[in-house]
Amino acid sequence: MYPAIHDPNSHQSYPADAHMGPIPASGVPDPSPNQPYSAVHHHHPYLNRAPSAPVTGQWTSGLCHCFDDPVNCGITCVCPCITFGQITEIVNRGSKSCVSRGFLYGLLTVTGFACFYSCFYRSKLRGQYDLPEEPCTDCLVHFCCPGCALCQEYRELKYRGFDMGIGWEANMDRQKRGVTTAPIVIPGMARS
């Protein structure tokens, strides 16, 4: 019924449901080689990198990692036009204002065509940072998961050193003065 587990030390196989003796209920994993599983440590790229380190060729967080930035997730759920406006001001390098693009996105949301407008900016963002078109085409991502797509794009720009709340001009002023945003620190996390 269950697959066999092969013990490389003794070259024997055991049924998967048979264990090697009593398992203590300490709540701490047993790192001994007799365990039928291996300890897996997950690495989260968005939380462990410095925000100003340029990374090309990959997104810094997944499409469904909205709760990596819970404040932005809440704002995007309530009023996605705010997040969209912040993204477009940075992607457009200040040539279009956050307010004008956010207002236009809000109008297009009412008509049902906002996903076509926002997929254009996702494509533009991907082109600026050489990001892959994943998990599917930009328009399909914005059509099926508009909130998740906006949150991912927001996190991407934030990770790349932009303070999304101050706009393009203030970010450029900070950059000229050599001021960078502080890395994201989560309580209980330590550098490895």
Rank of each mutant, 00 (worst) to 15 (best):
I90T: 04
A149M: 05
I87K: 11
C79K: 09
C115E: 07
N72E: 13
V71P: 00
T76N: 13
Y117L: 12
F67G: 02
G85S: 09
E153M: 15
A50N: 05
E134P: 02
H41I: 13
S123R: 13
T109L: 11
Y129W: 15
T137V: 04
K124E: 14
N48W: 00
Q152T: 05
L140G: 02
C98F: 05
S123K: 14
I75H: 04
R49V: 03
A39K: 07
C136I: 00
V71H: 03
F143D: 02
R49M: 11
L108F: 07
V99K: 15
C145A: 05
Y129G: 09
Y117M: 09
S123N: 14
A50F: 02
P135I: 09
C144H: 05
F84Y: 13
W59F: 08
C151M: 09
T111I: 11
L47F: 11
W59I: 08
F116H: 14
T137G: 15
D69I: 00
P33I: 09
P70N: 02
Y121D: 12
H42F: 12
C73S: 09
G106C: 10
P146Y: 07
F103N: 12
A50D: 10
D130G: 07
C148W: 10
D130T: 10
P36I: 01
S97N: 03
H44R: 06
K124G: 00
P33S: 13
D138R: 04
T60R: 15
F143P: 00
T60I: 07
C151W: 03
S95F: 00
G62P: 05
P36S: 03
P80A: 04
W59E: 06
C139Y: 13
C151Y: 02
P54H: 05
Y154V: 04
L125Q: 10
P33T: 10
V78Y: 14
S52K: 06
L125P: 07
G106I: 01
R126F: 11
Y129N: 10
T111R: 10
Y37L: 14
P31T: 02
E134S: 14
T60G: 14
S32G: 15
S100N: 14
D68M: 02
G106L: 12
Q128E: 14
P80Q: 04
T88K: 09
V99R: 13
G62N: 12
L104F: 11
V40D: 12
T83Y: 01
I90P: 06
V71D: 04
Y154D: 05
C79M: 11
H43E: 10
G94I: 01
S61P: 01
I87F: 09
T76Y: 10
F120P: 00
C145G: 00
L150A: 14
